[in-house]
């Protein structure tokens, strides 16, 4: 597969997803609102919304396209997986002598093996090139943002920085380092520990970090780390929690509480604050169609109570504007329910 054909196909798929985002989504929303107005009682939950949209032809195409445009993106003839596979020798060589600390004997959890998240064949961990595949795929995760996708991470880092300057940072579930590098640059005096289950991802993260002196990439389970108690004054994650089943989700927060020093801060960028049954219905459907089955348990979690139970204080759920000029309340286009979950570990 030549580079031009790959890029042309991926551009076509992204343009199709953009049409889906800006044209199909508002139509579906309007269909729902019209049906809700005529309904005997106001829809209360996603099941009520499903009943109103059941059988709607446009909703069927909306669902089909959400599922299959992603499949084509990863596994079609011009997909990310075959494209990178054809460049295996060169890409594989670039990851040799990685400075990442790998753990080849680390057992991958069942939930991680059972579902290939994002419809990435084999998941983000089973092939040495998975970091590269994930990195390229992440460029077009949110069509609404276009080329401004990197802006999301900078905005999150700025939010964290506006509340203080950390010295020891743990980035849980760092992937290939897209979330990590902005923290390294924003806080050059801090030591950043970046951990992820995926060996291929942390290898690429270390490769992309170059000679950066203040970051270490390690293959490790975020909810079962080897760090001492009270090691960090900032624990962060970006788009990680929704990939965890409920039990592991609780362990994840408990681990954050353990490794944070008293008074230390926790800031996670994820999908949580969802306004109304229609948005919830769309989001849960996205989780199912995109192979991310734990979107729903995260969204249904009682965050305040769960975090308070673990000894967190000043707990905040902050709706997050992912790019300049986007409205948090507009229904003109589909968008993720970006949310910052922020808390501090209580000082005894």
């Amino acid at each position: 597969m030549d580079d031009r054909s790959f890029v042309a196909a991926q551009d076509f798929l992204l343009a199709s997803k953009t049409f889906w985002t800006k044209r199909l989504y508002p139509e579906i929303r309007q269909t729902y609102e019209d049906a809700a107005e005529k309904a005997a009682s106001k829809p209360q939950d996603p099941a009520d919304v499903a009943a109103l949209l059941d059988g709607d032809t446009l909703y069927r195409y909306f669902s089909w396209l959400e599922r299959h445009l992603q499949r084509f993106k990863y596994a079609g003839r011009y997909g990310l997986v075959p494209y990178h596979d054809e460049r295996r020798a060169e890409l594989s060589a670039s990851l040799r002598n990685t400075s990442a600390e790998l753990a080849p004997d680390l057992e991958m959890p069942n939930y991680y093996q059972r579902v290939d998240i994002h419809q990435h064949p084999g998941g983000v961990w089973s092939d040495e090139l998975d970091g590269y595949v994930y990195e390229r795929g992440a460029r077009s995760t949110t069509p609404l943002m276009g080329a401004a996708h990197a802006d999301l991470h900078h905005r999150f880092t700025e939010l964290v920085a506006s509340r203080g300057e950390p010295e020891n940072i743990l980035d849980m579930g760092c992937g290939f380092g897209k979330s990590t590098h902005p923290f390294c640059r924003k806080f050059p005096a801090a030591q950043v520990e970046a951990i992820d289950l995926s060996g291929p991802c942390v290898s690429l993260g270390a490769h992309n970090a170059g000679e950066a002196p203040n970051v270490r990439f390690r293959q490790m389970n975020a909810y079962d780390t080897d760090y001492d108690d009270n090691s960090f004054d900032l624990v962060t994650s970006t788009m990680v929690i929704h990939e965890l089943p409920p039990t592991e989700m609780k362990q994840f927060f408990a681990e954050a509480a353990r490794v944070l020093a008293p008074g230390g801060r926790m800031a996670h960028l994820d999908f949580y604050a969802i306004d109304g049954p229609f948005a919830r219905f769309i989001h849960y459907g996205h989780g199912r169609r995109n192979n991310e089955p734990f979107m729903e348990p995260l969204a249904e979690m009682d965050m305040q109570a769960s975090l308070a139970e673990l000894g967190f204080t000043n707990i905040e759920v902050i709706p997050f504007q992912e790019a300049e000029g986007l409205s948090l309340t507009s229904h003109d286009a589909w968008r993720f329910p970006w949310t910052v979950i922020y808390a501090e570990k209580a000082v005894d």
């Binding site: 054909s5 196909a9 551009d11 076509f12 084509f72 079609g76 003839r77």
Partner: peptide
Amino acid sequence: VMALATEVYVQRNR
């Protein structure tokens, strides 16, 4: 249909 549409666009672009 969508696989074909992708192919058509790739060819058109080229």
